[in-house]
Amino acid sequence: MNDESQQPNPSAHRSFHPDKYAPEPDKPRKTPTKEEKEASGAGTPSDSLTARAEDRGKSQGMHDTGHHGSSRRPSGKKDASAYTGVNPEDSSAGDGSR
Rank of each mutant, 00 (worst) to 15 (best):
M1W: 05
M1K: 13
M1R: 13
D3G: 10
S5A: 15
Q6C: 11
Q6T: 14
Q6V: 14
Q7L: 11
P8D: 10
N9S: 03
N9M: 04
P10E: 07
S11G: 14
H13K: 09
R14Q: 10
R14N: 01
H17I: 00
H17V: 08
P18V: 08
P18F: 15
D19S: 15
K20A: 09
Y21K: 09
Y21I: 05
A22W: 06
A22G: 05
P23T: 12
P25L: 11
P25V: 09
D26F: 07
D26T: 09
K30R: 15
T31G: 00
T31N: 03
T33F: 04
K34C: 05
K34N: 12
E36D: 06
E36I: 04
E38M: 11
S40A: 15
A42N: 11
T44W: 11
P45T: 08
P45W: 10
P45S: 14
S46F: 12
S46W: 13
S48I: 10
S48H: 10
T50G: 08
A51C: 03
A51L: 10
R52K: 13
A53M: 06
A53D: 12
E54R: 00
E54F: 03
R56N: 15
G57V: 00
S59G: 15
G61M: 02
G61R: 01
M62P: 01
D64L: 03
T65M: 08
H67N: 00
G69I: 04
G69A: 00
S70R: 09
S71F: 02
R72G: 12
R72M: 11
R73E: 11
P74G: 09
G76A: 00
G76R: 02
K77G: 05
K77P: 00
D79M: 03
A80C: 08
S81K: 01
S81A: 11
S81P: 03
Y83D: 11
Y83Q: 03
T84S: 11
T84Q: 03
G85E: 07
N87M: 05
P88N: 06
P88D: 01
P88G: 02
E89N: 13
S91G: 00
A93Y: 12
G94F: 02
G94E: 07
D95F: 02
D95G: 08
G96V: 05
R98W: 15
